Computed example of a mutant assay.
Amino acid sequence: MCLDDARYALRVPEEPDGDVMVQASADSDVGIWVRGVTRRFGTAEALRGIDLSAPYGRITALVGPNGAGKTTLLLILATLLTPTAGQVRVAGLDPVADPDGVRSRTGWMPDALGVYEQLTPREYLAFFAEAYRIEPALVADRVAALLARVHLAEHADQPVHVLSRGQKQRLGLARALVHEPRVLLLDEPAAGLDPRSRSELRDLLRELAASGVAILVSSHILAELEELADRVVFVAEGRTVSEEEIAGVSRFVVSGWRVRALDDAALATALAARGIAPLGITAAGSDLPPMSDVDAAALLASLVGDGVPVIAFGPIGGQLEAAYLALNKERR
């Protein structure tokens, strides 16, 4: 188990000291609130003025290139680093003034999970339940429910060291949820997961958000984030570039589109009549030149109106990935 994991879990009291509670901004719907946060390591500036908010009941994606400061920010939110300057509130509390209070309300899943290899998953979760001072009478049932929730019940009494990387990731998520946090911080949670496990992770996180949990997730798997998140915060070089609703990221890009129809000849004729030459044709469909959402919607309507049996029509690649690339052109 890594040092940060131990520091995080083993200092959480049953109730925070009311004398050191610091209230967040006036918006009680925000689980995470960050303004002007900087962090220096000697002369190196990892964060240069990050702004971010993550509301309760929604999933916020944190997106940026390597070295953008994502993990540094998550460590600050998890109380494992202190900011050099700026304001931070997590579940209404200041992580610097009241780290124990923040930990009692926050679930933290780092990208590199440390585990006690000789414990079983059941023992591992029970250990953390005790560290979070959960009522002893509740521990056994809560641990069993979590193991079932992350599909590890059949491995509950095997040593952790026999688990695959993906299974350890799921165990890490169960550990982050053992005290029923109001805020969840996830750094690359899908790393090592197979497609089915990723789908189950998406379902679980959507369920948690629907129950009112504020979730902040960082990942390089942008296609997964696009399906999962409600909002996105783009960061680069330690600064916030943009904070958007997922539905609004298309404003950054004009995407190419792909259309597929049951009748290829009818599709080709209809596109030619509109002066549109496909950039390529594959089994996935005909790739069309870039166009706005409005123009794409009009084209689809006209194709259907002409009787072309369209069965698939959408942007090539994800909108989130396209927006990310558009905002990071200088890195190419």
Score class of each variant (00 low, 15 high):
Asp98Ser: 15
Arg332His: 05
Glu130Asp: 10
Val20Asp: 14
Asp111Ala: 12
Leu47Phe: 13
Val183Pro: 07
Leu208Ala: 07
Thr72Lys: 05
Thr84Lys: 11
Leu93Gln: 11
Glu321Val: 00
Pro83Ala: 09
Ala223Trp: 00
Ile50Val: 15
Asp293Asn: 06
Gly49His: 07
Glu244Tyr: 04
Pro65Glu: 14
Leu300Pro: 09
Asp29Ile: 01
Pro315Arg: 00
Val253Leu: 04
Ser286Glu: 03
Val233Ser: 06
Asp111Glu: 15
Gly18Trp: 06
Gln118Leu: 06
Asp5Leu: 09
Glu237Tyr: 10
Arg331Trp: 13
Gly42Tyr: 04
Phe252Gly: 06
Pro83Cys: 13
Glu207Leu: 02
Arg11Gly: 10
Ala266Asp: 07
Gly69His: 02
Ala322His: 03
Asp203Cys: 03
Gly212Tyr: 01
Thr72Val: 10
Leu216Asp: 00
Arg39Lys: 15
Leu10Arg: 11
Gly285Ala: 01
Ser197Asp: 06
Pro315Ile: 02
Pro65His: 11
Ser104Thr: 13
Leu163Pro: 04
Val254Ala: 10
Lys168Gln: 07
Pro83Phe: 11
Leu152Gly: 10
Glu45His: 15
Ile59Gly: 12
Ala112Ile: 12
Pro309Trp: 03
Leu171Arg: 08
Ala326Met: 09
Leu267Lys: 10
Leu171Phe: 11
Ala85Gln: 14
Ala156Ser: 14
Val253Ile: 15
Leu75Gly: 01
Ala144Asn: 13
Ile59Lys: 09
Ala176Asn: 06
Gly42Asn: 05
Lys168Ser: 00
Gly307Leu: 02
Pro189Glu: 00
Asp141Trp: 02
Leu288Ala: 04
Glu130Gly: 10
Arg198Ala: 05
His179Asn: 10
Ala297Gln: 14
Ala214Asp: 12
Arg7Trp: 07
Thr120Asn: 13
Glu135His: 11
Ala214Ile: 12
Ala298Glu: 15
Arg182Pro: 01
Leu327Ser: 03
Cys2Asn: 12
Pro181His: 03
Val22Asn: 10
Ile134Asn: 05
Met1Gly: 13
Ile59Ser: 12
Asp263Thr: 05
Ala236Cys: 08
